[in-house]
């Protein structure tokens, strides 16, 4: 058995394109997932019982069902059910935005709940409304504590995006499958993309550790 990286290196442009798509899906899912998660968290904490229960159900449902099942559902079932066309790309964005929003919602919730009750009292006493208090007092403090958990979840999201290859979206994983089949060099191809993923994610997670240390030093507690 001898290693031969030439075919893989010859297809590096295709792999890079895949990497770009991986980052694109991750970035867009974050872009939609974070605000959606905030909305879910606020609904969950709302005093309106029905709103809170609906939000809780959505959060728990998307946290307990496997992302691959969600992906298949949005790809195969959703278009028939609602008569819309779903490309692999839109499926990926829709699925991962909602899936990660459920996790972000829990981060937001524990961040908001970690803020001392006195902060609500102090704001209430000077006549601030619930919304003003959330926006001006609670969230600015909570967000800082949530940063490490956010980064951790974003890294998980990046890893989860490999699933989009199963519905033929041309992410890094899919491109690797493609090259492996064409060149008959699965060992080299899959080893190379494992290394790419490793480096990418390792850098991100080291970065998040640095940020977490900084926050810890500035005396801020964090939530997970």
């Amino acid at each position: 058995m001898e290693w031969n990286f030439a075919p893989v290196l010859g297809s590096m442009d295709i792999l890079l394109l895949g990497l770009l798509n991986t980052l694109k899906v991750t970035g867009l899912a974050l872009l939609f997932g974070v605000p959606l998660g905030l909305g879910l968290a606020l609904s969950r904490l709302s005093q309106m019982r029905i709103l809170s229960m609906v939000a809780a159900f959505i959060i728990e449902f998307f946290r307990t069902t496997p992302p691959l099942v969600q992906l298949f559902w949005f790809f195969f079932a959703f278009p028939i059910l609602f008569g819309v066309n779903m490309t692999p790309f839109t499926t990926a964005i829709v699925t991962f935005s909602i899936q990660s929003s459920a996790f972000f919602a829990e981060i937001f919730r524990s961040g908001i709940q970690s803020i001392d009750k006195g902060q609500w009292e102090g704001s209430k006493a000077i006549g601030m409304t619930r919304n003003q208090t959330l926006r001006r007092v609670i969230l600015p403090q909570a967000v800082k504590r949530m940063i490490p958990a956010f980064m951790e979840r974003s890294i998980e999201l990046l890893k989860t995006t490999t699933l989009v290859s199963t519905i033929a979206y041309t992410d890094l994983m899919y491109q690797a499958n493609d090259i492996a089949q064409r060149t008959f060099r699965p060992l080299e191809v899959y080893t190379v993309i494992a290394v790419i993923y490793f480096l990418l994610i390792f850098v991100f997670s080291q970065l998040s550790i640095v940020v977490e240390r900084r926050l810890a030093k500035s005396g801020e507690g964090t939530v997970h």
Partner: peptide
């Protein structure tokens, strides 16, 4: 209040 409740940020 007893515990001040100042906004730390």
């Amino acid at each position: 209040f007893q515990h001040f409740n100042l906004f730390p940020h």
